[in-house]
């Protein structure tokens, strides 16, 4: 297996793995936010904003992987 083959197999896979972890984190964050909103509906605005900030930070981890994939995908061709 030359390195092009390895890259073209594992680059999408790495993005998938990172997205999997992010999805677990996002699911947890959103679930807790939903619970908080259900307990205290009057605080829904604040909960939403804080949840968005947290979600953006969690998402950033997948984006770092995306950057790595972008950088390395130039090596395939």
């Amino acid at each position: 297996m030359n390195y092009q083959t390895a890259l073209s197999i594992f680059l999408p896979l790495s993005l998938g793995i990172a997205a999997f972890g992010s999805a677990l984190g996002l699911g947890k964050a959103v679930a807790s936010a939903m619970e908080a909103t259900a307990r205290q509906p009057e605080a829904s605005g604040k909960v939403l904003v804080n949840m968005m900030a947290g979600c953006a930070l969690i998402e950033a981890l997948t984006i770092y992987t995306l950057i790595v994939v972008f950088v390395l995908s130039g090596k395939i061709a």
Binding site: A56, E59, A60, I63, Y64, L66, I67
Partner: peptide, 13 residues
Amino acid sequence: FAKPLSLAFRLYG
């Protein structure tokens, strides 16, 4: 330095 990187690539992506 990671902040502008993630900001830019999140929006772009």
